[in-house]
Design a protein around this nucleic acid. Sequence first.
DNA 1: CGTAACATTGAGTTCTCTCAAAGGGCGTGG
DNA 2: CCACGCCCTTTGAGAGAACTCAATGTTACG
Lengths: 258, 258
Amino acid sequence: METLSKPTAVIDLASLRHGCAQCSLRQLCLPAGIGATDLQQLDEIVKRRRPVERGELLFRAGDRLGAVYVARNGAFKTVSTSEEGDTQVVGFHIAGELIGLDALGEGVHRCDAVALTSANVCEVPFEQLTAVAAQVPGLQQQLMRVIGHSMSRDQDHLQMLVRRQANERIALFLVGLCERLRNIGESATQFRLPMSREDIAHFLGLALETVSRGFSRLQDDGVIAVVGRKVEILDAAELQRLAQGGELPCPVKRGATG
Amino acid sequence: METLSKPTAVIDLASLRHGCAQCSLRQLCLPAGIGATDLQQLDEIVKRRRPVERGELLFRAGDRLGAVYVARNGAFKTVSTSEEGDTQVVGFHIAGELIGLDALGEGVHRCDAVALTSANVCEVPFEQLTAVAAQVPGLQQQLMRVIGHSMSRDQDHLQMLVRRQANERIALFLVGLCERLRNIGESATQFRLPMSREDIAHFLGLALETVSRGFSRLQDDGVIAVVGRKVEILDAAELQRLAQGGELPCPVKRGATG
DNA sequence: CGTAACATTGAGTTCTCTCAAAGGGCGTGG
DNA sequence: CCACGCCCTTTGAGAGAACTCAATGTTACG
């Protein structure tokens, strides 16, 4: 096929022309519940398809809030480093999720946003976003909802960390990730983790060895299959049960007396 | 003085007539940075001086978001109870602090708001607040800022819980509380805790006994003086140091060889 | 195919939790 | 004003979970 480059160009052109209205993520993103005419106002301020390389930073702690970002694909982490130097992963962000609301308070970012994979983002200048939101009640409402969801996610994160044991946190982490993958239409039973064990550890407030042991334990119990970052969920119901504090009474000897 | 009741009545009347413009908390609250004319619009929707008794709930988890509240005095806690029944104190709220933003996501509260002492609150119907905010850019901005601060506080809370040992969390808790007391012009060196050891434990993700031991240890080390809920800060610098991970190398025998 | 980063596994230690009981503060009622 | 009782708080002892340090195994990428 000599014309291979032609269709590709057409697709690119199409996707460039396509705005929020055609985006597969629109139900999860700012446009949700906004009429066609209003949507155009939003469309005009969104800078689409900025490519980001693995390891690249969207912003760092201390930067002024210029824009918020929506991951179109790929994955990000937001990381906060305390004065004493220990790092806390504040959140992971996959397609359709907003990044940058941490600066809402003082107008200055409190954490770094790092690409875990190569990725593409939409960039939404924040000043313009609030300006448009003031004129479009639907957007105003959706913006509040998105902010609220972000707060809810933080709350869930907190609940996941406090007074839960390591295996419980890890199960919760996996359950949460699966649900989000399902939301964006990706496989929730077989996937590749975009983040390292260390990232997970810093997210869950555990030592990385503890995370590794947790994965191994889940594998030994037949709940998941793990090879490095490749994960397969074998028993979602059991995983769910473990996430809610359920425990295997004792380590069952697999293949022994039964 | 026979006329004792008269001045009291005058004061009450005055404080009833006084709106946000005269409120001692206005710099911490929604009116911050809003002009006099715009302020009146906000003033008109705020229901002032609703008294609340100790133990009373402003709202419970599951309630629709009707209004947000600002504590005028007294103290509140917000508590989230998981399906498994264990409770997490999401936050403590003293004068000038907003309560109720937890419902921003789905429009339904995620936690109970309980008065820890008798208190007074301003009630701000949320629909009307956003409506006014859409017309008053200053208020819009301030609302965002307040929401952002709320998120920042949650972040700080998370940082306080993760990978920090018990004594560090307790020191951080005290440092944070002192700062907030200072903000509202109350003594930050001598005060009465509005919450029980159990509340603190549920806030810090510790067992209540561990909290009690932590207070005792701080007292033994001469950093604070504690009698029940009465606390006096004796060595603020040392408290600050402990909050940042500093440790007394070994338990010094006080009064011994020196 | 080699290398460097990442992940797993093991052993010993420390911190916090749990269970249990005794010691005050505070409000109520006499 | 004092005494009583309840609840909150403090303190002790033992157990368990996760951390740290250390070494080995594996994956992914050039």
